[in-house]
Design a protein around this nucleic acid. Structure first.
Lengths: 190, 190
DNA sequence: AATTTAAACTAACAAGTGTTAGTTTTGTTA
DNA sequence: TAACAAAACTAACACTTGTTAGTTTAAATT
């Protein structure tokens, strides 16, 4: 099953956007990268903004869908958190460029695209917060300010792509093993 | 002691860059925000790039200077880490816009500015890594992959400004108390 | 009051922006 | 082979970009 021309454009765009940012990439840059002229892009997509929207909403929807499933599972909060961390690692490997693009360039989404993205993000954070609350209620998690935990864990997970890019030393297996440890159990010996 | 016009420009620019990104802000936008015409800006600065460079290098230098001091102190690694976290919180409060700008727009620095920034960042990460290594050597820290810890802690600290901006719930005192707990000791009850 | 300096202005430049219209080429199906 | 659709092309549009040159105004100093 081969890619449509539109999909090729989106993949190329996501790489360029990741490298230099949405605003720094012109339609001529993107076209040149694909070996065609800028005007030819419009046979496949309707605007530059559409490209950004498709890139970002694709992963945003995947994330939200996953946490909605986990959320309903009959698991301890710790197991849920572990599953969420694993999911972030997987999506980071699979959609590195899309993810970087989402983190850096969502601000340049316009109107409806931006609204849909923000709704998805809020839904994700809300579910994540509730899972943490469940953990506190059931006595599995420490009594730490909820927002600080939401913040520190999600920030780390969202920016995994940065460190995966410079794969100098971090192996995927190590990441899958030690990242949950770090985030859940801390780094200080007890 | 009042601000020079140049300093005013830099402060205004840092706010606009934070809100919409370096490339999305034109010199005409910046000038309008200051109530003058674009050409008038050039009585005070030499280029748009210079503005970005000054904004970013200012905080980058402050961070590096601080960690260099901490690094040489006769303190346990845990105390050093606590001091580093405190410093991040302080600088975030003091230079919110500069910091956001550094995180989002360093990629748009050119030539010498970019090189100087990357050098400072590498120096910072290197010192941070060595402090963690000291902690492992002295048996204070767990035997977790070093790069993963560098990554997860620094990422959280660097993006504090995002969560400080939406100061919905997080109080500074809470942050100062619970952030070190979260990062150092984890969130799971032992 | 005269002079100097700081900081604004207008006008313009060359280059680059996303996008449209209309046309030609390429490859596939009837 | 003829017809059709997909995907490229050229040319142009209206507008925005960072920046420079030269000039005028306002404030500070002599």
């Amino acid at each position: 099953m081969s890619l449509t021309r539109k999909q090729e454009i989106i993949i190329t765009a996501s790489r360029l956007f990741k490298e230099r940012g949405y605003n720094a990439i012109s339609m001529r840059d993107l076209a040149a990268e694909m070996g065609i002229k800028a005007a030819s892009l419009y046979n496949h997509i309707s605007s530059k903004q559409e490209i950004l929207g498709l890139i970002i909403l694709k992963v945003a929807e995947e994330f939200t869908q996953h946490i909605n499933t986990i959320y309903l599972d009959k698991l301890s909060s710790i197991k849920k958190l572990e599953a969420i961390i694993q999911n972030h690692i997987e999506i980071t490997l699979k959609y590195t460029h899309h993810l970087a693009c989402m983190n850096n360039d969502w601000i340049h989404l316009e109107d409806e695209y931006k609204q849909r993205y923000l709704n998805l993000r809020n839904e994700y954070e809300s579910k994540f917060r509730q899972i943490l609350q469940q953990g506190k209620d059931e006595g599995e998690l420490k009594d730490i300010d909820l927002e600080i935990v939401v913040f520190s864990v999600l920030t780390t997970l969202r920016t995994l792509h940065i460190w995966y890019a410079k794969k100098t030393s971090i192996q995927v297996a190590t990441l899958q093993q030690d990242l949950p440890k770090t985030l859940l159990y801390g780094i200080v010996k007890s």
